[in-house]
C-alpha cells in the first residue's frame, strides 16, 4: 500500500491566529459593556462602523495584492485592529474620521508593509496618531459620561450626529477627560488634590474611566490566563508607568498626579493589555518584553505630563515599536546548556 508523504513538521494542534484574535475580542467585552453604560450608543456605532470599514478595506487590500481573501479575512486580525481603534475614539465622532483612521491602519500601516505579520507599527495606534495630529479638535471631543451628565442620547440622535445629519451642541455634550482636567488644572495653578476632589472623580480616577480601566484589566487578566498574551508586557508597562509616577508624586504630590490616577486614566489599561501586547509589533524575547513594556510605561508618563496631547499611549507604543528590532537583538535568551551551571545543582 502506498501512502502520501506530503507531511511537514507533522502535528500542529494549537489555537490558530483567528482563535487567538477571537479571544482578544472576548476579553474586550467587559470594557465595551462598561463604555456602553457610561457613553451610550456612540461606542457601539464606533465599533460597528470600524469593523465594517476595516473588513471592506482589508478585503480590497487583499484583492489588490492578489492574496486569498477569504482565509485572511477569517483571521480576525482586521476586526481586532478595528475594535481597538474604535475604543480609543471619542463616541459620536464623525463616520469619515473612522474611515480615514482605518485607511491608515489597514492600508498604510498594515498592507503597505506586507500585511499581517509584517507591520512594524501597531496599525490601530498609527490610525489614532494620524487622527490626533490631523484632527485634534474632533479627537478630543469626549462627551460627558452618562453618570455625570445624566443625559442619555437616543440611538437615532447618535446616528444623526455621527453621520452629520444633526449638529451636536458640542459645548453642552463634551466634558474634559480626567487627564485633560488634571493637566489644565495643574497649568492654571490648582493643586492635584483640589482637582481630583471634584464629584465626577472616583477613588482612582474619573468615575467612568476608572470603571472602564477596571474592565480592561479584567479582560487583560483573562488574556494572560488563557495564554494569549504573556505577563511580561502588561506588567512592565504598568510597573514602568507607576514607577515613574510614584517617584514624581513623592517629589511633590501637589503638582504630580498619583500613580493610581495614571494607571486608571485614559488608555493605560487598554494600552498595557491590548495594544502593547500586539505580537507583531512588540518585542518577542522575555527580557526584551520587559524592557519594551517598561519603556512604554515611561514614555506614557513623560508625554502625558509634559506633552500637549490628551493621552500618550499611542505615541509611547509607536516610539517603542521602532526600538523592537534592537531590543530583540540584544536580549536573546541563552540556549540550553549555556547558562553556566553545567555543574551539579544543589540537592
Amino acid at each position: 500500500m502506498q501512502f502520501d508523504t506530503r507531511i511537514t513538521s507533522l502535528v500542529n494542534d494549537a489555537p490558530d491566529i483567528s482563535q487567538l484574535m477571537k479571544q482578544v475580542l472576548y476579553a474586550l467585552i467587559p470594557a465595551v459593556a462598561t463604555l456602553l453604560y457610561f457613553y451610550g450608543w456612540g461606542v457601539l456605532i464606533n465599533l460597528v462602523l470600524a469593523v465594517v470599514f476595516a473588513l471592506a478595506l482589508e478585503g480590497i487590500a487583499l484583492w489588490v495584492r492578489g492574496k486569498p481573501v477569504k482565509p485572511f479575512l477569517k483571521d480576525f486580525s482586521a476586526i481586532v485592529t478595528a475594535c481597538l481603534f474604535a475604543l480609543t475614539l471619542p463616541p459620536l465622532i464623525s463616520w469619515w474620521l473612522i474611515l480615514v483612521g482605518l485607511f491608515f491602519a489597514i492600508i498604510v500601516a498594515k498592507h503597505l508593509y506586507g500585511g499581517i505579520g509584517y507591520n512594524p507599527f501597531n496599525p490601530a495606534m498609527i490610525a489614532y496618531a494620524v487622527l490626533i495630529v490631523s484632527f485634534p479638535l474632533q479627537m478630543s471631543q469626549w462627551p460627558g459620561a452618562y453618570s455625570v451628565t445624566g443625559e442619555w442620547l437616543s440611538l437615532s440622535d447618535s446616528l444623526s450626529i455621527v453621520f452629520g445629519q444633526m449638529d451636536a451642541d458640542w459645548d453642552a455634550i463634551t466634558r474634559a477627560t480626567p487627564l485633560d482636567e488634571v493637566r489644565t488644572g495643574l497649568i492654571t495653578g490648582q493643586s492635584y488634590q483640589d482637582i481630583v476632589a471634584g464629584d465626577h472623580f472616583g477613588w482612582l480616577s474619573g468615575v467612568a474611566w476608572q470603571w472602564t480601566s477596571l474592565a480592561y484589566l479584567l479582560g487583560g487578566l483573562y488574556l494572560i490566563k488563557a495564554r494569549v498574551i504573556s505577563w511580561q508586557i502588561p506588567v512592565s508597562v504598568l510597573a514602568g508607568l507607576a514607577g515613574v509616577a510614584a517617584l514624581m508624586w513623592l517629589v511633590d504630590s501637589s503638582i504630580y498626579a498619583s500613580p493610581l490616577f495614571h494607571l486608571f486614566s485614559g488608555a493605560t489599561m487598554l494600552g498595557a493589555f491590548f495594544i502593547a501586547t500586539d505580537p507583531v509589533s512588540a518585542s518577542t524575547t522575555p527580557f526584551g518584553q520587559l524592557v519594551y513594556g517598561a519603556s512604554i510605561g515611561f514614555f506614557i508618563y513623560v508625554i502625558r505630563t509634559w506633552g500637549v496631547y490628551p493621552d500618550s499611549v499611542a505615541f509611547a507604543v509607536l516610539i517603542m515599536n521602532m526600538a523592537v528590532p534592537m531590543i530583540d537583538y540584544y536580549t536573546q535568551p541563552k540556549v540550553f546548556g549555556d547558562s553556566g551551571r553545567a555543574v551539579h545543582g544543589k540537592r
Binding site: D16, P71, S77, G115, V280
Partner: peptide, 9 residues
C-alpha cells in the same frame, strides 16, 4: 493554511 508569522513568540 500557512499564515504569515505574527511574531507571537
Amino acid at each position: 493554511l500557512v499564515m504569515p508569522c505574527i511574531r507571537c513568540g
